[in-house]
Nucleic acid binder design. Structure first.
Lengths: 393, 393
DNA sequence: CCCATTTGTCAAGGACATAGACAAATCACC
DNA sequence: GGTGATTTGTCTATGTCCTTGACAAATGGG
């Protein structure tokens, strides 16, 4: 079972046939050769040859036979998920979540540990330890993995590869994290903004499946947005697309204070919401959880603070809507996942935009970014392994 | 010279080779067979066969020979532009601009006429007359054309195909203009928002060449935006992406008046700018041209009116920037093309956003939408004629 | 005028696809 | 339990397309 990419130097026609077979199997989970032939339009003979090669190389495996219908029973084939494993890591200010998934997107090992607050190289060491441990739990070793996807807060510069991380995590903006981590592991590493990953996660297996235009809005300590437009992630020229912290809403756009924190972020972040509660005379809440408890108890300052936050969030969503025209906005984050807030946003929205998008709360909660990393990893593995490259170039 | 798509039912391998040859010739304007072989990596033999077929079918034509270098001279081939002609029409409230271009994007005939104000079917008749006339001027007939691209104001619903046109043009929102026009001409018709077309025009041969993320902002009687993201036009879920008239900036987002005209449009449109001038005590201008003349004469009310308009436009661009992170914003339209306004915007922008995009004035002025239509037409012809379809489906 | 260089064609051989015949396996029905 | 219809999968023959290498044709430089 040689684990090189299938049809590595085969002529172009066989590459295309092989790709068509793999894609057909992927799309149908499990399928017989006869059905592959019908779906691809290729001859039975060609399919048999291609499937034989793919099975010899370990990419496909037989998985039972048909029965119950007239005629000879067919052998069913499916993708051998174990033929490719990848890692997804979600680096947060307090926790690191990580998982290994296979070629089919099945999670084969998962863990969550506190973030090493010393930052920098300590994080790289921590990642490495996590991967070794996960690999062991998955019954394999780290050198069998194909790819790591790492989600971090902050803006990634697509030119330099550097991350401008918010204050949460020390010593990461000074280094080329991707490069260091990649050579440490001897694996390709993809680094992506965590909110972008959350959007990808919803696109992959959440509310965004089959929705080509939507946005994932994260409301928490900070605010951020991941955009799926025309079915693909939108990063912008400097990787800052969706950085709605700087949206000129909820304050004076020309106030220089908006530059450090962001105009919108100073208006709808959890800190602003708590400050607003105090300003309204509230005295019973010092955390977001407290505040929502007070809201549900009907305390007027809490109601006012949350309503005002929802009102501003609705205006922000209206602004995004006027630009992107999404079909759907998915909310997440510590306050964006609260139905109380989201219901208020749903009430305000039709009053400030003529075309209000649908609003849904993230299907994956705080696992959205982790899911997105797996989605990207699986997609990338499929491309690398089964993609048709017309020319090497 | 049979004018069907080349390699219509040839097996897949020859299709790919044919496509590679055409694309290489397109990318190099004119080129010898030997060089095509080097660039594509295909053998001289294959290239000779493919080029012979393409020449027999009229897609390629010889265009001289090399000389001056050692060795036998090569025959140079180029695309036969005349093998495909298409029409671009820009429907405006007062004028209709139209042009015929060939496969290479060369303009072979162009005209401009006043819009028939009766609207509806009268417009379809007018389009038809224009096309016949242009075809004649181009030395061909209307039935030899392959495609029409029509730019209109208003939002196109991608589901119903209907156009919600601003008040300018009567009797168009009630009909399926695309369908009626298409069957009248017996040609495929693509209808697209005019600002989207302007963005495509800049992308094709203007400031947006090689810029994968930019926006075209039209400032005039109305305001609108066309978005190129990840190198492609962004339409959104309902075709309303870029409809920044409704951006909640420059007024109260919850004012119901913002629904009919749009919050931003009531703040930065030319009507608002003139009203603002009057409000500041100005009495010497009743048109946009007058107002800019007064500005250049140093009249304080005119300066204030234009500065305030620029200030709001800068905030709007900042909002778009926080969402899309474009590398570049191109301005156009009757006031967006004025350097006086644009310079003022350039001054305000760095004060309301930490990452101000570059600002340029449209390269094509009021021909931008016409150019965009040609760009789309050429691209579409290339796809239809030379595109590789792996499966008919 | 000769030669190095480049272009383009010819002929042979290999990889891959298709089509059709045929053997094998299975269900339905008597 | 046997028979026939149906479906699967392999085998064989044939054709298309691509590549390779030989070779003729054309051209500039010395």
């Amino acid at each position: 079972m040689t684990m090189t990419s299938p049809a590595a130097q085969t002529p172009i026609a066989r590459k295309i046939s092989t790709n068509a077979v793999i894609r057909t199997v992927l799309a149908n989970r499990s399928i017989s050769r006869a059905d592959i032939a019908k779906l691809t339009g290729l001859s039975k003979q060609t399919i048999s040859e291609v499937v034989r090669d793919l099975e010899d190389e370990g990419w496909l495996k037989p998985a039972g036979r048909t029965d119950g219908r007239p005629g000879r029973n067919a052998v069913i084939y499916e993708i051998n998920g174990r033929a490719g494993l990848a890692v997804s890591i979600d680096l947060g200010g307090t926790k690191i979540a990580a998982a290994i998934c296979d070629l089919l997107g099945n999670v084969v090992a998962e863990t969550k540990v506190p973030t090493d607050r010393r930052g920098g190289m300590h994080l790289v060491n921590q990642f490495s330890d996590i991967i070794v441990e996960l690999a062991s739990a998955a019954g394999t070793t780290a050198d069998k993995l194909r790819l790591v996807v790492l989600g971090t807060p902050g803006v990634l510069d697509p030119v330099t590869g550097h991350i401008n991380v918010a204050p949460n995590i020390p010593g990461v903006d000074a280094m080329d994290l991707r490069q260091v981590f990649s050579s440490r592991m001897g694996l390709p590493v993809i680094v992506e903004n965590d909110v972008n990953l959350a959007a990808q996660g919803e696109r992959w297996r959440g509310h965004g499946v089959e929705v080509d235009n939507f946005a994932f809005v994260a409301l928490g300590t900070g605010v951020g947005m991941g955009i799926i437009a025309n079915g693909a992630l939108l990063r912008g020229a400097r990787g800052a697309a969706g950085e709605i912290a700087y949206l000129p809403i909820g304050g004076d756009a020309f106030d220089p204070g908006g530059f450090t924190l962001g105009t919108l972020e100073s208006a709808v972040g959890s800190v602003a919401m708590l400050r607003r509660y105090i300003g309204f005379g509230g005295r019973n809440a010092s955390t977001v959880a407290d505040l929502f408890a007070a809201f549900n108890a009907g305390e007027s300052s809490a109601v006012a603070a949350i309503e005002e936050t929802a009102r501003l969030a609705a205006v922000a969503i209206a602004a995004v809507g006027a630009t992107l025209d999404p079909e759907l906005v998915i909310t997440g984050g510590s306050i964006g996942a609260r139905p109380e807030l989201v219901n208020a946003i749903r009430r305000f929205l039709p009053r400030c935009t003529p075309y209000p998008p649908r609003i849904e709360i993230s299907r994956f909660g705080n696992r959205a970014a982790l899911m997105g990393g797996m989605g990207i990893a699986v997609e990338r593995m499929h491309d690398d392994l089964f993609g048709v490259k017309l020319r090497e170039a």
